[in-house]
Design a protein around this nucleic acid. Structure first.
Lengths: 118, 118
DNA sequence: CGAGTTCGAATCTCGCCGCCCCGACCACTA
DNA sequence: TAGTGGTCGGGGCGGCGAGATTCGAACTCG
């Protein structure tokens, strides 16, 4: 299947080690205050903080933010849903649809079986 | 092998053709007014209506409601996200996969049936 | 130094996703 | 055919999720 974290049209991440909140905001098309807000909502997102509590984002932070962005803005998850998906194996939910139908068929077959046992 | 976060706890769908909104509400653990609301939000969900505009749900309606329920309550989609998901390529792939399985089972059952006829 | 950036906290907005109430209508049972 | 309980649609209400705005102060960098 297609990579779900793929954001269209975002600029490449420059080859440097640290990024300010303003830069990340540009790179990810997400406003700074939203970045701070997400930080409270996604524990996994925690840029290093230096002098004066300033945030310094690294590449993996930028990537994660793009991932979150995709889940929220493109795929239509709630924050709770996105959080769950980020640290749980998403396969479990993926299987849910097919399993729903297969499960139902199975239940019915077992009913038939019990009738046939007579 | 129970799948976590699935609609596993929901009762089996009884072997009848039509269900009232109250029955579906029980079967899916979704309140009637929410079922009516979802009907406006998901065009694909449209139970037949008879005398006095009463809804008569069929099996596939019940299954779809459980899918929607799973997307909204368990997987954490917004309604918009769930809707996109339901008629997006994702759903089609899964649906066709389930369809194949169901079809296969049906063919086998018909073989069994033809044997039983003797 | 000084312009621009970032800080956290508080407050505000807005729309999604229902909830509740209503009087009228309908189905089933006796 | 009357009673009883489920269902109808519509209108109004509202919590709360997800940001948006604002603030003065602290910081950075040229």
């Amino acid at each position: 299947m297609l990579d779900p974290g793929n954001n269209a049209e975002l600029p490449a991440i420059p080859a440097k080690r640290y990024f300010t909140i303003g830069e990340v905001s540009e790179l990810c098309a997400v406003k700074p205050h939203v970045l701070r807000y997400w930080e409270q909502e996604f524990p996994a997102l925690s840029p290093v903080k230096r002098r004066g509590n300033r945030r310094y984002y690294q590449r993996h932070d930028v990537l994660m933010i793009r991932q979150i962005r995709s889940l929220l803005y493109e795929q239509g998850f709630t924050i709770t849903g996105a959080r769950a998906r980020l640290d749980g194996p998403q396969a479990k939910a993926e299987a849910s649809m097919s399993h729903q139908i297969v499960h139902q068929v199975r239940v019915e077959l077992e009913e038939v079986l019990s009738i046939l046992r007579h």
